[in-house]
Computed example of a mutant assay.
Amino acid sequence: MGKSNLAIIGVGEVPTGIYPERTRWDILYDICIEAVRDAGITMKDIEGVITVAPQAQPRITSEISFRKIPEELGMTNVNDVCICNAGGASTTNCLRLAEQYIESGVAKIVLIPHVTVQSTIPVQDVINFFATAGQDTQWEYPYGSSFNGILAMVAQRYMYETGTTAEEMASTVVALRKWAALDPNSMFYKKAVTLEDVLSSKMVSTPLHAKECNVLADGGGAMVVTSADLAKEITDTPVYKLGHGAKYVGACNILRKDFFMREGWRAATNDALDQAGLAIDDMDILEFYMAYPFNQLTGLEAVGVTKPGESGKFVMEGHTSPGGKCPVSTIGDAAGRGHTGSGVSMANYIETARQLMGKAGERQVPDCRFVLASAAGGSGMNTLMTVFGREIP
């Protein structure tokens, strides 16, 4: 089974959307209770809580850090609590920490929750946070750069170098929204878009249209994890972590040598597949967590599904959409799901687990056995690739 001894045994989630009346603690209660119930255990079985740090939410971060989750939910056997912030890679690091808890004997079963409510944060505070978080204070921030602006420049260069057309780029969003339209937990449930819808939306930062950019949203999710051996005794549908790879590519987008992150993606993917003893052709789903559509295209190229410059046509032909031969991002990624801060990767892992458990509803990919899931931290500073499976090869 490679080097991992971790399995997901339960998941819980609330719908992503704009719900200012739903408090952070409302969400935390719901997702934790649902994940524990889904695992078929009780609150007293949880021995560790490792939480994804809510972005730009200092009050709830402080409350979580001081053990309020186990206190509130009656987890009387919790031995340790921890909060982890690695941007979009936070959930991945929570899984790593949970594995260490389990291996070292700190906890047999660990709960990993995440909550984000951005709709009640003052608009100026949200603007200030995202204007500084992940921006290089010498080369980017002084010139008013934003994530949309910086990633638009990368997308423009990608289109120039590969010949990818605006229609091919927009087709990525069309594909993602097809998946999102099937997901009751997406803010775009039953709201698919056409190519014309995407291309006619306002230009935010050339070449990115509004529908090619993120929509900030509220949301939350949780996972219950344990050792691979114990998982078999608890549930009939454990999801095993089979292999993992990580590569750092650089914090400043415009100064990266690996400009499109292909080399980092490729190296991390190869490490994950090697640990799992599997090949890219064995993957039934590619669960990419990337914030912008061109990243979906470079991801396909990096893992070897297409050659550079051919992924736009591949997506436009429908191969990554529902019913296609290469399902990609079956919750619609951030562009189709709504961006819940560092919690997009949580939603990605929950979807991975649901697909492998056979609980994905209309989105279910038939006979799904293995999934390659990605994450990245902050401004895309690193590439984290994990292979999960419903069986140990």
Rank of each mutant, 00 (worst) to 15 (best):
V78I: 06
R96H: 04
E71C: 03
K68E: 11
I69D: 11
V78S: 08
C82F: 15
R96C: 03
D80F: 10
P54K: 03
V78Y: 09
E72R: 07
A53M: 03
N79W: 11
N77W: 10
R67C: 13
G88I: 01
N85F: 02
Q55C: 08
R59Q: 13
N85K: 02
T61S: 02
E63Y: 02
S90M: 09
I60P: 00
C82V: 07
A89V: 05
P70W: 11
I69T: 12
C94M: 13
S90V: 13
C82Y: 15
E71I: 03
C94Y: 13
C94W: 08
P58N: 02
N93D: 12
T92D: 14
N77L: 08
R67A: 14
R67D: 14
G74T: 08
P54T: 06
A53P: 02
F66M: 02
T92Y: 15
R59C: 13
I64G: 00
I64P: 00
I64S: 02
V78Q: 06
G88M: 01
N93R: 04
L73M: 06
N93W: 02
P58F: 02
C94P: 07
Q55M: 13
S90K: 06
C84A: 14
C82T: 13
N85D: 13
C94V: 14
I69N: 11
K68F: 01
T92L: 11
A53L: 01
P58L: 00
E63C: 02
T91W: 11
N93H: 12
K68A: 14
K68Y: 04
T61E: 00
C94F: 06
G87Q: 06
M75R: 10
T92G: 09
I83V: 15
P58H: 03
I83Y: 03
A53S: 01
N79M: 07
I69F: 07
P54G: 05
R67V: 14
C94G: 10
P54E: 05
G74I: 06
A53Y: 02
E71S: 06
L73K: 05
N93T: 13
C84K: 05
I69Q: 10
P70G: 09
T61R: 00
D80W: 06
F66V: 06
T76C: 08
T92C: 12
C82Q: 09
V81F: 14
I64V: 01
V78R: 05
K68T: 15
S90H: 11
T61N: 00
M75E: 09
R67W: 09
G88R: 00
V78L: 13
S65A: 15
I69E: 07
T76G: 09
R67H: 15
N93S: 10
S62Y: 12
N93F: 14
N79P: 04
T61A: 01
R59T: 14
L95E: 15
N93E: 10
T76R: 07
I69G: 07
G74F: 07
P70Y: 15
R67P: 05
N79C: 08
Q57T: 10
K68W: 03
S62R: 10
G87L: 10
K68R: 14
C84H: 08
A53D: 00
I64R: 01
G74L: 04
A86W: 04
T76E: 14
T61K: 01
S65E: 07
T92M: 14
I83Q: 08
S65D: 08
V81L: 09
P54M: 04
V81E: 15
P70D: 12
P58C: 04
Q57E: 15
V78F: 09
N79Q: 07
D80N: 10
S62N: 06
